[in-house]
Design a protein around this nucleic acid. Structure first.
Lengths: 158, 158
DNA sequence: CCACGATGCTTCGTGTACGAATTATTCGCT
DNA sequence: AGCGAATAATTCGTACACGAAGCATCGTGG
């Protein structure tokens, strides 16, 4: 690995700009998802859940929270509100009565079919407009970055 | 621009993984910031505000919300709680009585000095460990991506 | 078989986060 | 001067989002 760490002052602007850009991309794509959701009377997270349930038929609350990277307590609230709107229903597992499965109701399934756009779709469309080479490079570098961060996180947890 | 858009199915996995990774990097670095903040009895956003005010001495509420990419109403709440804790104070501008400047109190300034780590620091450290070439490539591709998203956003607003 | 730790979900308290409505002030225009 | 649009901040209602505590259920070791 040649020239791994140049003095930090010289690359500070680049680093800051990269951080800025990633934050922009993340927040903007969330904002756009929210906009799509609003058109059908949903919130961002609710749209995400709806589309997930359309794909997987049913999911336990835990696996749902894992997929959307949120705590169980957060997802409980989201499901509460969606249940109130009649979009999903809870169903206790028969094999393990601690587990609750979340399913789409007819109304929920119908709504899910009406929405053509996936969450984060804009992000994905922008990505597919890159060249193959750029895509490969981007993925490679990001994975490298993720590895560094992961290492630091595990170090933290010691 | 050679080979700009290969069929979407072939690159779907790469695209999804890139999205996943960016989301991971964003959420993880926020989580880590939050952890640092907790150690001194602050929340993530409060730490960000504290460090910003340490750098700029004082900022109007609007410019503060612009910098942390949040709505005025959100920042009003954050400042309310920080004021309650005696970390900052509000001061009406004399030239324009609509404007409120936020300043650190003695207590706030002292706390800011005690915290060595910047928000998103881990992110930055990981970035500086990349090679110069990787950094340059990453920035170039991300900027391209941002341009595409921006175009789409402006198109939306028509 | 049964005590006990682990697991799955909910509840509660607090802190963002947003958008719409409100208030106070400023600025442009006539 | 003075009316009306624009701007700065706040208030309000709703929805995440998290962590700690609580409750029910499961699984295992003794």
């Amino acid at each position: 690995m040649a020239n791994p760490s140049p003095p930090i002052e010289t690359i500070r602007p680049e680093v800051d700009q990269i951080v800025e850009t990633i934050i922009y991309l993340y927040t903007e794509s969330r904002r756009l998802t929210k906009g799509i959701a609003r058109e059908v009377g949903l919130t961002g997270p609710q749209l995400t859940v709806l589309k997930l349930l359309e794909t997987f038929q049913d999911l336990s609350l835990s696996s749902l929270s894992e997929r959307i990277r949120a705590q169980n307590s957060t997802v409980t609230g989201i499901i509460d509100r969606m249940e109130r709107e009649g979009l999903v229903c809870r169903e206790r597992s028969k094999s393990d009565r601690r587990v609750v499965y979340i399913k789409l109701t007819e109304k929920g399934a119908k709504l899910a079919r009406e929405i053509r756009v996936e969450p984060l779709e804009i992000f994905r469309i922008a990505l597919t407009s890159l060249t193959q080479a750029d895509l490969k490079d981007l993925l490679r570098i990001l994975m490298k970055l993720q590895k560094r961060v992961l290492a630091r996180v595990e170090e933290e947890e010691t």
